[in-house]
Nucleic acid binder design. Structure first.
Lengths: 198, 198
DNA sequence: TGTACATCAGTGAACGCGCGTTCACTGATGTAC
DNA sequence: TGTACATCAGTGAACGCGCGTTCACTGATGTAC
């Protein structure tokens, strides 16, 4: 409970991440700067250097947390449904779409081409865990009759592309087709008929 | 043919756009700056002000050109196929995916949440024309049996989400699933079976 | 064809700003004894 | 429990840089006559 002591913030790393989330939300990835984060965390602008070597590392840390929130959002929705495979796909999609809608800046940080650390193992793991959820819900789908060059991965990629694409289009809707308030209904209406393994 | 005269570049607006395309390609949306564009176009850094009021206007102009290239890329592929509706969807998808692959920076500028001018009519029109292509190729798809809350738009949005999502995932591939060199084959393998109107 | 002149598209200097990073420093914390 | 001390996480000043924008200017272009 030693919050707000003079020196020794005690939790600065977490406070910087939180400040970063707020900045992402209000101004997108381009609004992130070490000095703004420090100010938001109530600390001098040289302080973050003790926790992050540079801005890219900070962005990467935000992206890692982003992937975790993202996985969590899908799992939250999955926890609410039974084992029907189609309903599970719809639930995970809802989680994905809700995450994108509620965290547009973070979504853009992760997927909008912002430069992040390459070969960051924690980032890769967090991304793989998110991908694992999609993989899991796509597993029961019956393979098509045509032999695909991608083997079993086609179904995962089809589901993922569909959800990911709808998320992206929702965030920069140039078509006026997408009402973010009913995004889950929209997803339901574009999910093609699927056959599942028995 | 009065290129390279001392004053009066003659074509500075176009030269700035071209320089912007190169910067986008090499450094992404964050690398764009008026001073760098001016330098690349071989002109003092105050010169662009005569053509663009500010950086956002310049970014918007790049985005407009981006949408046009993007539409063109789909039409180029459509011109190569016959009238079979599924082959037309595959062709337009190829065009979309090629555009994204060849112009990653531009794709991220348009869809990555970068701030652009709102209420720019030219931008809206260019986006609508791109969307029109998708609309056209999706039109022959038979509606599903379930009444959709989106009416006829579901098929367009399904196709668009699928293509758009695959493009985005290709550009930031955290899964290792997507081999950009065979992106058209991958798209073919994830396009679900469709029934077409007779 | 020639001249006067308005307009336009550049130049280059200057401005203030926010940025990341470095540095010597200092106060708080934790540990050895 | 008390003291000495190493370590750690902050401060605040300073740096150089690239940025957008403004400004008076000037040279080139195009037009009226």
């Amino acid at each position: 409970m030693k919050e707000k002591k003079a020196h020794h913030h005690g939790n600065l790393r977490a406070a910087l991440i939180e400040a970063g989330m707020e900045l992402l939300q209000s101004g997108g990835p381009a609004a992130l700067s070490i000095r703004k984060l420090a100010a938001k965390a109530g600390v001098s602008h040289a302080a973050p250097a003790h926790h992050f070597p540079n801005l890219k590392a900070l962005r990467t840390a935000l992206a890692i947390d982003g992937f975790k929130m993202f996985t969590q959002s899908m799992e939250d929705q999955l926890a609410k449904v039974d084992n029907d495979p189609r309903r599970r796909i719809l639930a995970a999609g809802r989680g994905y779409l809700y995450f994108a809608k509620e965290n547009a800046g973070l979504f853009n940080l992760i997927f909008g081409g912002t430069e992040l650390e390459t070969d960051n193992q924690e980032l890769e793991e967090a991304a793989e865990r998110a991908y694992g959820v999609l993989q899991m819900i796509a597993a029961p789908i019956e393979r098509g009759e045509k032999a695909s060059p991608n083997g079993n991965e086609s179904n995962e990629l089809m589901i993922w592309s569909l959800i990911h694409g709808l998320s992206g289009l929702m965030l920069t809707d140039k078509s006026g087709l997408i009402d973010a308030d009913h995004i889950d209904t929209i997803f339901e209406s574009i999910l093609p008929p699927l056959r599942f393994k028995t």
